[in-house]
Design a protein around this nucleic acid. Structure first.
Ligand SMILES: [Mn+2]
Ligand SMILES: [Mn+2]
Ligand SMILES: [Zn+2]
Ligand SMILES: [Zn+2]
Lengths: 152, 152
DNA sequence: ATCTTATTGAAAATGATTTTCAATAAGGGA
DNA sequence: TCCCTTATTGAAAATCATTTTCAATAAGAT
């Protein structure tokens, strides 16, 4: 996999050793279509490397976050899920049906920031934008998915 | 206070009883200039009503959130702080120097949403926007505040 | 092959939040 | 005003996620 090789290289360059548990964790997150909780990463990694410990998952996730390879995704019910980070200026778009999360770009909020700065006296430095919606797949199976979502 | 009376009325209308601990908690949050953690609300409420328990704080915060009177503010380091909610369509602007948080309005992202919908096939339903910057007060004492922020 | 030292998993510790429960008190009705 | 019902309370215990500790292991440089 391409992204995985890149992550491995970044890890090595930062002085990390490449171990089997780390490989498992990296593969899970790098290939995930949705943001995962640490415990989910743990369960999924266990399939590839049964001896893995939850502690190692937490430690590896910390590393990946420090290196800017993954990022926290904020959601209504909690903000402890992680996704591969964007490369440039992008934001997440989360499907409220199935959790599938993609990146989008093209938001230009500079005009808004100017207006806000003038009106409030604040100096605006950063912004955090996240969109929620229904992905194409869920739009097709609309009824089913909405029913499931109410349970979860 | 105006906002406090309104909150009390909403609570009563929803079948809640108005108690001394609840009053203390409400006053703290309704008047706060920045988003507070449950434990902070607890400590501040304790000054007005020393017998208060942390459990009551959690329970009251849940109620206020259910009733739409307060809202979670998401931040880099954690997303467990609460602020009075907006009335209409507004978003938070957080000072990274002192934590002061205000609401702003006037973001029109509909053009962006259309573009994203076309490009991704998602149907966009909700959006979260949060701005970070430096408030007027902190801009005046810029050096001092930045130094402090690096520690925290 | 050896050596250094980063990494590992189990277990214990921590910190935040929730549940349980018996005692209390809000506020509607007599 | 005085009951009475029942929501609310705080202490203590339980739960849950995350972090720390520590001795054993293994990555990767030499
Ligand atoms: Mn942007
Ligand atoms: Mn908006
Ligand atoms: Zn968040
Ligand atoms: Zn400030």
């Amino acid at each position: 996999m391409d992204r995985i090789d890149q992550w491995v290289r970044v890890l090595q360059k930062s002085g990390c050793r490449i171990t089997a548990p780390r490989r498992a964790i990296i593969e899970i997150i790098a290939n995930s279509q949705r943001a995962l909780q640490p415990i989910e990463v743990y369960h999924l990694s266990k399939q590839q490397y049964p001896g893995i410990g939850l502690v190692t998952v937490y430690r590896t996730l910390d590393r990946l976050e420090e290196l800017g390879l993954i990022r926290r995704v904020h959601q209504e019910d909690g903000c402890h899920t992680l996704m591969p980070a964007a490369n440039g200026h992008e934001h997440y778009l989360v499907c409220t049906g199935c959790g599938r999360t993609i990146l989008f770009q093209g938001d230009d909020l500079s005009a808004l920031f100017s207006r806000v700065e003038t009106k409030t006296g604040f100096q605006v430095n950063e912004h955090w934008l996240q969109l929620f919606g229904i992905c194409p797949d869920c739009l097709d199976h609309k009824v089913v998915i909405e029913k499931e979502a109410r349970h979860a």
